[in-house]
Amino acid sequence: MMNIHFFKFASFLYLFGTLAYLAYIFFLKGALSKIAVTIVSIGFASHTLALLTRYVEAGHTPVTNLHESLSFFAWMIIGILLMANLKYKVKVLGSFLTPIALTLMLFAFALPKEIFPLAPVLKSFWHPFHVIFAFLGNAIFTLTFCCGVMYLIQEHQLKSKKMGAITKRLPPLNLLDDLSYQSLKFGFPLLTLGIITGAVWAEYAWGRYWNWDPKETWSLITWLFYAALLHQRLTVGWRGRKAAMMAIVGFLAVLFTFLGVNLLLPGLHTYSNW
């Protein structure tokens, strides 16, 4: 059970990384953000090993139950954070993303962690592609969500003419809007690919491309939502507050598709309940 050890170690480091990031946003000391990045990077490496060892131990892509999905989602989020750190100098991003990843890890931690033999329906060439695309899209939308939250707070501060501790800690509006737009442009095609590969796989597994089970329906709703946001941005020049609010609502749809459907609505995707 090497993978569990790596998983626990990663969770542990994410906890400290989150604390360092929160300390950073509070004290605004550059050293703290460097410490945080280092801790989270080591945590990410350990998490990667956890997934690899689990892959070897299970013999299939380890995204087949809720524990694995949550862990995979968190891994993707941290990966996106580390990548965004390379390109954008928005250090406070970590203060928003790591708590989300940590929460996912804690839920994953509490769930049964045993490896079960793969359900026959999941044995497919398409399965790994489907989950990787879908989760990568979701992880990027998490980033879009955080940008949206930061944007709304910052915009409120500037509109109400308060230039205080909060304004100082959050990035400029244009940067947030840009990052939000860029992430949308990356996230949307990935979500699309996730749905397409899912449909192809469904054709193999169930004999139909589209079954209108709740997971599929909600994915479609989420997809339409982001499509609308992207469309508005490209054509009407929607930006700023409206776009930020839509990014937040869109992420709620993502969460519902991912968790709500599993827990509340029965359907073909039920193997990922626990």
Binding site: L158, M163, T167, K168, P171, P172, L173, N174, L175
Partner: peptide, 20 residues
Amino acid sequence: AISAVSVSSVAVELAEKIFG
């Protein structure tokens, strides 16, 4: 020395918070 204390520098700081 972290925050602007003249009207002009406050204006610049605000502009930077909007436009980057």
